[in-house]
Design a protein around this nucleic acid. Structure first.
Lengths: 267, 267
DNA sequence: ATGTCTTTGTGAACGCGTGCACAAAGATGG
DNA sequence: CCATCTTTGTGCACGCGTTCACAAAGACAT
């Protein structure tokens, strides 16, 4: 999960739980795959397997949408594709602007998964004048001076930020001021937005860090098979690189106002 | 959040809740920013604001790691950076391979957020012979024939898949067979892996679809201010594009409009 | 029509995550 | 040394999400 919702905390949207909404695209993908293979119907068990979830969960998810299945048979693939698409709002056209055409922005511009689901890349925007006019994925890059004009003319309500972290907030502000109400943020920053604007964040390095955590745990488990492990590796760690917990009062402990402090060099 | 864990369902890892682990990188980022500005200490309130979370949640999260704060003062920034880094396993070096050097793979290879957090790009791998030897982000691309050798020689345990969906599963199988135990998957497919292997998924289009859902809801709310809205737009929608609820034998019907095929083009 | 068999839809129980609210801990000043 | 003030750490309650398990619904055969 590279995901993390930000705004709109636990507000059930129109009776459909957030967790369910987040899984609908998953079902939709599995269903379109079946549709292409001309499979007419599918059971909750089969579809759940294809989507990588539990079948009970899938049935409950669908129950929020309505009773679209047939007992004893399963779900009609085409019908379900349509119902989910409609629920997600994919039956209409969503113009999207991508701001920041670096490697990532270019990758996004060329990503087939967008166009295939109702998202249309209305414009690519970059602050670098050298990029202006250069076609990326077949679309000419426009200069960020025209950001407001582009958004208003095309009625864009969804913006993707793929800029460096330093300028993400100001880009965000301009997008919002121009009328964008949903933002997908790839920059590693916390964006602050007014009420009514949704922000979703995708952070590439966070996912890796979570993997590292589990990886470390796996490695630790197999070496310290016994109990011993439980007793905080604190002492051992302290021997390696021990910034003092706090100046402390009495302790002679090396207080380090700016002690060496290991690793994690600045981004 | 663009994210979604896959394997390892609700297993509390060593007493630290998954939800907390997922937030640690967030805190770490905020803390390193403070560290760069040489801020010595920070209160839970301030740090929570910087990380975009609730302060009670932050304190509870930290309480799982231990008592690293000082009442009446706050947390020592440097010390906390170290503790979180250690908990996440970032004090050690994690060699990572990226498979599939298209636009996205190239973006990942050059992403600063990796190197700055203990992740080292050990190799870039692509199946296209034309790519072999070509430097991307300063690292020469290697051919996928050498995948197993690279992984074993470098002791790589984390792999990133940025290939087209069609080959993601086989790439995954080869990675796992060669010894990789954590996988970050950018291909829009459900990967199946043996027990003991962690998979995390980042799907760019899923995030947009979730945004679209909320966007649609927002738009619907303001236009249908009254009750009327509640009564399923079923009939109206059916008039627009109504695949029969149970196509049965007759209508083979509209094949999937979108070639789902994901892109993330290989070269 | 009737019975059997498959699969959905959901009531209910459970567990995790979140947020409140407060006591305990320590800093700071007199 | 005592009083006051700030901020942490956490017990507790609540709500969301997940899972189980089963009754109801329909297909299908006889």
């Amino acid at each position: 999960m590279a995901t993390g919702r930000t705004h709109r905390p636990a507000t059930r949207s129109r009776g459909i739980p957030e967790a369910t909404v987040a899984r609908l695209p998953l079902y939709l993908r599995a269903l379109t795959a079946l549709s292409e293979r001309s499979v007419p119907t599918v059971s909750s068990e089969e579809l759940a397997a294809a989507a990588g979830v539990n079948s009970a969960k899938l049935r409950k998810d669908f129950s929020y949408l309505g009773s679209y299945g047939t007992r004893g048979v399963g779900y009609d693939v085409e019908y379900l594709v349509y119902q989910i698409s409609r629920e997600l709002g994919l039956t209409q056209d969503w113009p999207v602007v991508i701001v920041g055409i670096g490697n990532l922005g270019a990758a996004l511009a060329g990503y087939g998964g967008f166009a295939s689901r109702g998202f249309r890349v209305a414009a690519l925007i970059d602050a670098d004048p050298a990029m202006t006019g250069k076609p990326v994925a077949g679309i000419p890059v426009q200069h960020s001076d025209d950001l407001e004009k582009i958004i208003e003319e095309d009625g864009v309500s969804i913006g993707v930020i793929a800029t460096p972290a330093g300028v993400a907030q100001q880009v965000c502000d301009r997008l919002v001021a121009a009328g964008v109400t949903s933002i997908l943020n790839f920059a590693p920053t916390v964006l602050s937005v007014p009420d009514g604007v949704d922000v979703r964040k995708v952070d590439l390095s966070i996912e890796l860090q979570i993997l590292a955590f589990h990886e470390q745990r796996k490695a630790g488990e197999e070496s310290n098979a016994e109990a011993e492990a439980e007793a905080e590796a604190e002492t051992a760690a302290a021997a390696v690189a021990p910034p003092a917990p706090r100046g402390t009062t009495g302790g002679a402990g090396r207080k380090g106002p700016d002690g060496d402090v290991p690793a994690v060099m600045p981004a």
